Amino acid sequence: MAEVTATVASTVGLHARPAALVAEAAGELDTEVTIGLPGEPAEDAMDVSSVLSLMALGAGFGQEVVLRAEGPGADEALAKIKELIETNHDA
Rank of each mutant, 00 (worst) to 15 (best):
M1G: 10
M1H: 07
A2W: 07
E3M: 10
E3N: 11
E3Y: 08
A6V: 13
A9R: 01
A9N: 03
S10Y: 07
T11R: 02
V12R: 00
G13I: 11
G13C: 09
G13N: 06
L14Y: 00
L14K: 00
H15C: 02
H15A: 02
A16R: 01
R17L: 00
A20V: 11
V22H: 02
V22M: 04
V22C: 03
A23C: 09
A23E: 00
A23R: 00
E24V: 05
E24C: 06
E28Q: 11
L29E: 08
L29Y: 07
T31K: 06
V33A: 10
V33K: 09
V33M: 07
T34H: 07
T34K: 09
L37G: 12
P38D: 05
G39S: 10
E40L: 15
E40Q: 14
E40K: 09
A42K: 09
A42I: 15
E43H: 09
E43C: 13
E43W: 09
M46W: 06
D47F: 03
D47R: 08
V48K: 02
S49C: 05
V51R: 00
V51E: 00
L52A: 14
S53Y: 08
A56W: 01
L57F: 10
G58A: 13
G58D: 15
G60V: 02
F61A: 14
F61R: 10
Q63M: 11
Q63Y: 03
E64I: 00
E64N: 10
V65R: 15
V66Y: 03
L67T: 15
A69T: 14
A69I: 14
A69S: 14
A69W: 09
G71M: 08
P72H: 05
P72R: 12
G73P: 12
G73Y: 04
A74L: 05
A74G: 12
A74W: 02
D75T: 13
E76K: 11
E76N: 10
A77Y: 08
A79L: 10
A79H: 02
K80Y: 06
K80A: 15
K80L: 15
I81G: 04
I81Q: 02
E83D: 13
I85F: 08
I85L: 06
E86A: 08
E86H: 09
T87H: 01
N88V: 06
N88I: 03
D90K: 01
D90E: 11
A91M: 10
